[in-house]
């Protein structure tokens, strides 16, 4: 009887969210994907594959997402370490710095970057007035601006998984290692860092996959010169009303996301087993 209750309990708890996802997410996504083969042919996919341009955009998007994920990782690791080890007061301040922008609208944050990065923006004016540069740097309406904006938006998604893993690390391990004569650097590279890898992997996958579908930031900070697959899909839907083709591009994006997620997950599982 009790086992039965245990058996039904989780299902009952999950029924509502599952129904929610099923009706409002899975069904529309399936419908969208079906659109790409609507007329019973793979014409939309053939078109995407035939033109090097579209695959080029997909590759560009992958590259952009990789750069963003890498920069996020480099920035987030020390930030997460700080949050996991700092005193309560400092950690609270750190969380505030991380979460306040996270809570504000992505549009507001993205437009704010145009004020900072523009030719007449804060950064360029500062550099010009101090005489460090003679001509304003091109920081906006190009890939650099898009990367900055995306890193800003996605950073918390990297910090939290790493932070969560760091919190769980048994500090006695490090104490034991140094007690056995390991230098702090050795303790870090041999004990601490490997233990944080699952968090770093999880954060990287999360950021990378979210970045793949990014739309608003490249649209605003890219000046029409940085084209991601998300922008291309929007163009097909809004401007050309070519839903089958847009659906084909979306399917390619989804496949890429699954492929990357799957590969990383396999690596990640290997990683945990290795311990």
């Amino acid at each position: 009887m009790s086992a039965r209750r245990q058996g039904w309990g989780p299902l009952a708890a999950g029924a509502l969210p599952l129904a929610f996802l099923g009706v409002l997410f899975l069904y529309p996504v399936a419908r969208l994907l079906l659109l790409s083969v609507e007329d019973g042919s793979l014409r939309a996919f053939e078109r995407a594959a035939a033109d090097a341009l579209y695959l080029g955009v997909l590759l560009e998007t992958l590259k952009l997402s990789l750069i963003v994920a890498a920069i996020c990782l480099v920035l987030a690791y020390p930030a997460a370490y700080f949050l996991a080890t700092a005193s309560r007061g400092w950690a609270a301040l750190g969380f505030a710095c991380l979460l306040l922008p996270f809570w504000s609208s992505i549009l507001v944050r993205t437009y704010a970057w145009t004020i900072v990065l523009g030719r007449n923006g804060v950064v360029n004016r500062l550099l010009l007035e101090t005489g460090l540069i003679a001509e304003p740097l091109a920081l906006l309406n190009n890939e650099a601006g898009v990367v900055v904006g995306m890193v800003h938006v996605l950073l918390p998604y990297m910090v939290f998984p790493i932070y969560a893993v760091m919190l769980r690390i048994d500090r006695d391990l490090a104490a034991a290692a140094s007690g056995l004569g390991a230098s702090p650097w050795r303790v870090f590279t041999r004990i601490y860092f490997p233990l944080t890898l699952p968090g770093a992997f999880a954060g990287s996958v999360l950021v990378f996959v979210i970045a793949l579908g990014f739309f608003v930031t490249p649209a605003i900070l890219g000046g029409g010169r940085v084209v991601t697959i998300g922008l291309l899909i929007e163009d097909q839907v809004r401007r050309f009303l070519d839903w089958p083709f847009a659906a084909a591009l979306a399917a390619l994006l989804l496949a890429a996301a699954f492929l990357i997620q799957g590969t990383f997950q396999r690596v990640l599982r290997g990683e945990t087993r290795w311990h």
Partner: peptide, 12 residues
């Protein structure tokens, strides 16, 4: 023309 433009503008 719209289609050609969309391709031209994203071509490197």
């Amino acid at each position: 023309m719209e289609e050609r433009w969309a391709k031209w503008v994203i071509a490197k």
